[in-house]
């Protein structure tokens, strides 16, 4: 990721913000049926419905959101997700965005971004009483956090690919959190729906940034 020498990134343009919001929302909507299908296999068959209820609520506020500074957007997006999704996904994704918002103003370089991201992941673990390896969203977020923290220079494409690999890696896991944990060993062999959502959002963000920020 490109580095800046000033105290913080200059904020993104409203156009890029709009593109980011739109593309994340569109991506989730486009994959809603797949997400529900994944949740039918190991959960209660509503993850796609839940996520699309969340992103539709965000879409409805796009115009107001793009006027805000990025930390405020993250904060508001988190709130919208919490207030509209419910279930497990609402608090999980909502908490993640709201935590990112807290220190986002101090994002300066990969190292500071890594810390912000890590704080987000930790807040999700705390909220869900969960940790990596339990077949949840965290199994996508935690490895990405590790990558960022490693300090190795990282392309958006590589970050994207890592998200996909991490989601994929939930397949052989036995779930220990969320509804899939009720299945015991029967949860093995299925992709975690929440992990797939996290992957989709990360990839949507990376693809917009890759296009717009070069």
């Amino acid at each position: 990721m490109s580095q800046h020498s000033d105290a913080s990134f200059p904020d993104l343009s409203a156009a890029i913000k709009r593109r980011l919001i739109e593309h994340v929302c569109e991506t989730i909507e486009e994959h809603a049926e797949e997400l529900t299908r994944l949740d039918k296999a190991v959960g209660d068959g509503d993850h796609g419905i839940n996520m699309s209820r969340g992103v539709r609520a965000i879409s409805a506020e796009t115009e107001q959101l793009v006027q805000l500074e990025t930390p405020r957007i993250l904060q508001r997006v988190g709130m919208i997700l919490v207030m509209n999704i419910g279930g497990a996904a609402g608090p999980i994704f909502g908490t993640f965005f709201m935590t990112l918002a807290k220190d986002f103003r101090t994002a300066r370089d990969q190292a500071s971004l890594a810390q912000i991201f890590e704080a987000g992941v930790e807040s999700v673990c705390a909220r869900g009483k969960s940790r990596p390896g339990q077949k949840t969203v965290i199994d996508v977020l935690a490895p990405l956090s590790g990558l960022l923290l490693s300090g190795k220079p990282l392309s958006l494409a590589a970050f994207s690919e890592a998200a996909s690999a991490a989601a994929e890696a939930t397949i052989p896991l036995q779930a220990q959190r969320g509804r899939a944990s009720f299945l015991g060993a029967r949860s093995i062999g299925h992709l975690d729906p929440g992990a797939r959502s996290a992957e989709l959002m990360i990839k949507a963000v990376c693809s917009v940034l890759a296009k717009e920020c070069k």
Binding site: D44, G45, D46, R53, V82, M83, I85, G86, G87, P91
Partner: peptide, 12 residues
């Protein structure tokens, strides 16, 4: 009461 099979939200 949340959506079908979906916990209610904190504000609710």
């Amino acid at each position: 009461m949340g959506e079908i099979f979906t916990s209610p939200t904190p504000d609710q």
